[in-house]
Amino acid sequence: MLPYQELAQLNKLVHEPARLSILTALSACTMAEFLFLQELTGLTKGNLSSHLAKLEDGGLIAIDKHFVRRKIPQTTIRITAEGRAAVDNHWKRLASIHEKIRKQGAHNGHPPASFLE
Rank of each mutant, 00 (worst) to 15 (best):
N11Y: 05
L48A: 13
H110F: 13
L35R: 15
S96N: 03
S96V: 06
A28N: 01
L37E: 07
L20S: 14
L2Q: 09
H110S: 14
R69S: 12
G46A: 13
L48M: 10
T24M: 07
N47H: 12
G46I: 05
Q38F: 11
P112A: 13
S50K: 07
R19E: 00
H66D: 09
K12Q: 06
V87L: 05
T44C: 14
G46T: 05
E39D: 14
A95G: 14
I77V: 08
L116H: 10
K103S: 02
T44S: 15
T44Q: 14
F115M: 13
A81M: 04
I77W: 02
L116V: 08
N108S: 10
A25M: 13
V14A: 08
R78D: 07
L60M: 07
I72D: 01
L116N: 12
F36A: 04
A25C: 13
G58Q: 00
L60D: 02
K54A: 05
L37T: 03
S114I: 08
Q104S: 02
L60A: 07
V87K: 00
L60P: 13
S21H: 03
R93Q: 11
H90V: 03
I79W: 15
P17D: 04
T30R: 15
N11K: 03
R70V: 00
R19C: 01
D57Q: 02
F34L: 05
A62H: 15
N89H: 15
